[in-house]
Design a protein around this nucleic acid. Structure first.
Lengths: 199, 199
DNA sequence: ACCGTAGCCAACCAACTAGTTGGATGTCAA
DNA sequence: TTGACATCCAACTAGTTGGTTGGCTACGGT
């Protein structure tokens, strides 16, 4: 029979609990017992729904990236504005930043990433949008720029300890930092004159 | 009596082994037994020299940052060149990048970081150097720029899985990426005209 | 010669951990 | 009514782990 509401609710509760636990502690540091407890579900259900700890992590990061995609529009004609709203999203969702970091540290170079095909596809669309906004054809160069924009938006949340050392109390002024990042990007990337229209 | 060569050698071997283990697996994922085995030293010596696992990590990252400081000159008048050589250093020492990431993920906001005072001091010197190179006074704004330059140099090694998704095979072209980062920085930051001389 | 100490070791310990097992309950189709 | 199956649970298992302990050896000072 089709899974009923209760099964879907169990799965959702486990994903929510796992997101918090993996964001805080990573894959090796997360505890399966704690995830189950936080979800109010038996530990065996984690294995029933997801198979093992690592597949649970994959499901968590895939879901978090899906949510990002539904909420943040493509770069378009204004990369600085794009970086600004992406920065704001990451500031509001530090768990996604941390999940990407744990994933990066766990990455061994060749194996497929969770949801790889759709992630590649989405990034290609972002690259195309950025290229159009810059009045250029999509290329490796524009993809590198897209990578740097994504990275710049992530940096403040990725390196809070470095921000603290470098900026002291000002490290808490997140909005000022976001403006600084957007200004940096605006200076680095020319806004195209005439021609291209934003979508 | 003063520690003899053998004691210093034990400590050095433990630090080397710990650097590899912590870089690869982080604090929670590292195994004390593996560190001791790799160092060719009894596990109890870790506790004898460092106290506990977390203090060992602190010693490792402090040593790695000390080495960075001895090898990379201050920003000076050419921030793009600075980012280029910093990028090259991080590309050659991915273990430092990873240690900074594990530290970031372990950071809980308020507690002192290992070697905090000297790290703050070094960053203040970098900020002063950058500010002078830009023909400005050191300020929170120049400190934010310094933070972004440091972050840009770190990005490719910090997010290899994202680079892979966004750039495909081109993700392995590290030198091209470094040039792209340096060009991005050169575009974002004006080179001062007249006035300031590089140190 | 003896004593104290530094530095080292093998073995140990108490607690922890991911994953499994045997069984219970509810639902639906025959 | 019965059987099959999905979904759930408490208890368990086999192995892991950070840190400790009791003792050995070498060395230097008295």
């Amino acid at each position: 029979m089709a899974p009923n509401v209760s099964t879907a609710a169990t799965r959702a509760a486990l994903l929510d609990a796992a997101r918090e636990e993996f964001a805080a502690y990573g894959i090796a540091g997360a505890r399966v017992d704690r995830i189950a407890e936080r979800a109010g579900v038996n530990k065996e259900r984690i294995y029933g729904h997801f198979g093992n700890k690592e597949k649970l992590f994959d499901a968590v990061i895939t879901e978090a990236l899906d949510e990002l995609t539904t909420q943040i529009a493509l770069p378009g004609a204004d990369p600085a504005a794009y970086v600004d709203r992406l920065s704001a999203y990451y500031a509001d969702h530090p768990e996604l930043v941390r999940l990407l970091m744990w994933e990066a540290l766990n990455y061994r170079g060749q194996e497929l990433l969770p949801g790889q095909e759709s992630r590649v596809e989405r990034c290609a669309r972002k690259n195309a949008s950025l290229a159009e906004g810059l009045g250029q054809e999509p290329s490796t160069s524009t993809a590198r720029t897209m990578f740097l924009l994504t990275g710049l938006a992530l940096l403040p949340a990725m390196l809070p300890q470095l921000a603290r050392i470098m900026l002291g109390e000002e490290a808490s002024a997140h909005e000022d930092m976001r403006e600084h990042v957007a200004a940096f990007v605006a200076a680095a990337l020319p806004t195209p004159k005439g021609g291209s229209r934003p979508r």
